[in-house]
Deep mutational scan, measured.
Amino acid sequence: QDAKLCERHREKLHYYCEDDGKLLCVMCRESREHRPHTAVLMEK
C-alpha cells in the first residue's frame, strides 16, 4: 500500500496534528501554521 502524500509538498505524511485533525508531512509540521500545534509522529 502506498503511503499518502502531502498535496502541498508531495512528501509522505508522518504526523497527525491534534489541533487541526489533519495529517502532516515534515514540511507542514515545521510550517508557521502548525509549529505551535500538538502533532504526533504516527507509527508505521
Rank of each mutant, 00 (worst) to 15 (best):
D2S: 13
Y16D: 05
M42L: 13
E18L: 07
A3D: 11
H37F: 01
C6H: 06
K22T: 12
Q1H: 03
L23D: 09
K22N: 07
K44E: 02
L24T: 04
A39N: 12
K22P: 02
K22F: 01
K44H: 08
R35C: 01
E43R: 08
L41H: 08
R32H: 13
M27K: 14
D19S: 08
R10Q: 14
G21M: 01
T38D: 07
E7T: 09
L41F: 04
H37V: 01
Q1C: 12
D20L: 02
V26A: 12
D2C: 05
S31H: 14
Y16P: 08
Y16V: 09
R10M: 12
Y16A: 08
L24F: 01
D2L: 10
L23S: 10
E11P: 02
H14C: 10
S31P: 03
L24V: 04
Y16N: 08
K12S: 10
D20V: 03
L24W: 05
V26E: 14
E43C: 03
A3W: 15
E30Q: 10
E7K: 06
E43L: 02
R29K: 14
C28V: 00
E33L: 04
C6M: 00
R29A: 06
A39R: 05
V26K: 14
R29I: 02
R29W: 02
L5M: 15
H9I: 00
R10I: 06
Q1L: 11
R10V: 04
R29M: 10
H14N: 13
E18C: 10
T38F: 05
L41C: 07
H37W: 00
L23G: 07
M42Q: 11
C28G: 05
G21K: 13
L13P: 15
P36G: 15
G21N: 06
K4D: 09
V26P: 12
H14E: 12
R35H: 10
P36S: 13
H37K: 09
K4F: 11
E7M: 03
R35N: 04
L5Y: 04
K22D: 03
R29D: 03
R29H: 06
R32E: 14
L13A: 15
H14K: 15
C17W: 02
R8Q: 13
R29S: 07
C17Y: 05
G21E: 10
E43H: 14
C6P: 03
Y15P: 06
M42G: 09
C28F: 00
L24D: 09
D19I: 08
C17T: 05
E30Y: 13
E33D: 05
L13C: 14
Q1R: 10
E11W: 02
L23C: 03
G21A: 11
L24G: 08
L41Y: 02
R35F: 06
R8D: 04
P36K: 12
R10W: 03
A39I: 11
E11I: 04
S31T: 09
C6Q: 00
E11Y: 00
V26Q: 14
Y16L: 07
M42V: 11
C25W: 00
T38Q: 13
T38S: 10
D19K: 07
Y16G: 05
L24Q: 09
P36C: 13
H14S: 15
C28I: 00
H37R: 02
E30R: 09
D20G: 04
D2T: 14
L13G: 14
K12M: 04
D20Y: 02
L5E: 09
H34V: 02
L41M: 11
P36Q: 14
C17K: 12
K12R: 12
H37T: 04
E33F: 02
K4A: 07
D20S: 09
R32S: 14
E18N: 11
R32K: 12
V26I: 13
H34D: 03
D20H: 02
T38R: 14
K4P: 03
M42C: 07
D2M: 13
C6N: 01
E18G: 03
K12E: 10
R29C: 09
G21R: 10
D20R: 05
E33V: 04
A3G: 14
D19G: 07
R35Q: 08
E11H: 05
M42S: 08
S31G: 11
H9E: 03
V26W: 13
C28W: 00
C28N: 02
L41N: 13
M27E: 12
C25P: 02
R8P: 10
Q1P: 07
A39W: 07
C6S: 02
H37Y: 01
K22W: 02
L41V: 12
S31C: 11
H37C: 06
K12V: 03
T38G: 08
E33I: 13
D2K: 13
A3K: 15
L41S: 07
H14T: 14
L23Y: 12
K4C: 08
C25T: 02
C6E: 02
K4R: 13
R8E: 14
C17G: 06
R8W: 10
Q1T: 15
E30P: 00
A39M: 10
E43I: 01
D20N: 15
E11G: 03
R29T: 11
E7C: 12
L23F: 13
M27N: 15
C6T: 00
H37A: 04
L41K: 12
D20C: 15
P36N: 00
H14Y: 15
D20E: 05
K44P: 08
E7A: 10
M27S: 12
C17M: 01
E18S: 06
E11Q: 10
M42W: 05
L23H: 07
V26H: 15
L23Q: 10
H9V: 00
C6R: 01
E18D: 06
E18M: 07
E33Q: 08
E43Q: 09
C28D: 03
L24C: 06
V26Y: 10
Y16E: 07
H37S: 05
E30V: 01
R35V: 05
K4V: 09
C25I: 00
